[in-house]
Amino acid sequence: MTKVKILYFAWVREQIGLTEEQVELPAEIETVANLIDWLAGRSDTHALAFADRSKIRCAIDQSIVAQDASIGVAKEIAFFPPVTGG
């Protein structure tokens, strides 16, 4: 089990109702996609937020990664919609 900080932003944060949470990751979770599946099972609001994976972006330790990326020894993993700055 590895302790990881999960952060949520924008409507992902609103739908889940949390800005962040500390989770103990089971060893079998290897990729971002695995993590999304696992997080979606935590509550109805998590399931709702992660319902459309095409609208979810992820950053591991503050670098944007694809959903097939390996989690490795990440300390901080963030989920958010596609960015809309500028």
Binding site: F9, A10, A59, I64, A78, F80, P81, V83, T84, G85, G86
Partner: peptide, 14 residues
């Protein structure tokens, strides 16, 4: 810079 700001920086507008 303006083009990349829209896609490469973690901002969200409401």
């Amino acid at each position: 810079l303006i083009d990349r700001l829209k896609t490469n920086a973690p901002f969200w507008k409401q």
